[in-house]
């Protein structure tokens, strides 16, 4: 008799396929979460934490919102290379808390990084960014040809 690795699904022939499907679905969701969204590919390398991001679209621009509470403007670096937009930086611990006695430590510190593959229709030289109330907003204007055009069709 040989030892076979126990597999719950095999021992239960009538194991509902719905449950298996659900598990696959959950695994997929987890994979996708770390892979990024519609536009993006995320780099996990050398980052201590990953800020949450929203990507939105308007008629003439894309906007990326990054949650960076407690990060100083000067500690954020935004770069654009080969149509890859990268936001990286560091969240430093407040100076006066360095030698304090901690009761609770839930906030994330250290380096963070996220990258996004942009559509080629973004005007790379006109990207601008602002930071307010813990949110970094990057605005990526679309090139003229990417904006929706309205063509009037005359009915004869």
């Amino acid at each position: 008799m040989s030892l076979i690795r126990w597999n719950a699904a095999r021992d239960l022939p009538a194991f509902p396929s719905d449950v298996m499907n659900m598990q696959r679905e959950i695994n997929r969701m987890f994979d996708n979460f770390f892979r990024g969204g519609l536009m993006g590919s995320d780099t996990l390398a050398s980052a201590d934490w990953i800020p949450a991001v929203d990507i939105a679209e308007r008629e003439n621009e894309y906007s990326v919102r990054v949650e960076l509470p407690g990060v100083t403007k000067d500690d954020v670096k935004i770069t654009m290379q080969n149509n890859i937009l990268t936001v990286r930086g560091e969240k430093k611990q407040e100076k006066e808390s360095k030698d304090a006695n901690f009761h609770r430590l839930e906030r994330s510190y250290g380096s963070f990084e996220r990258s996004f593959a942009l559509p080629s229709t973004v005007k790379a030289d006109r990207i601008d960014a602002s930071y307010a109330d813990g949110i970094l907003t990057i605005r990526l204007p679309k090139a003229e040809e990417a904006r929706p055009k309205q063509i009037e069709v005359k009915v004869k």
Binding site: E67, E94, A100, R104, R107
Partner: peptide, 20 residues
């Protein structure tokens, strides 16, 4: 998310509340 620490003179609570 909160950090709570204690110094000689006070307790300090720091809460991350981005977007507010």
């Amino acid at each position: 998310r909160a950090d709570v620490y204690e110094t000689q003179e006070a307790y300090v609570i720091r809460l991350d509340m981005p977007g507010s």
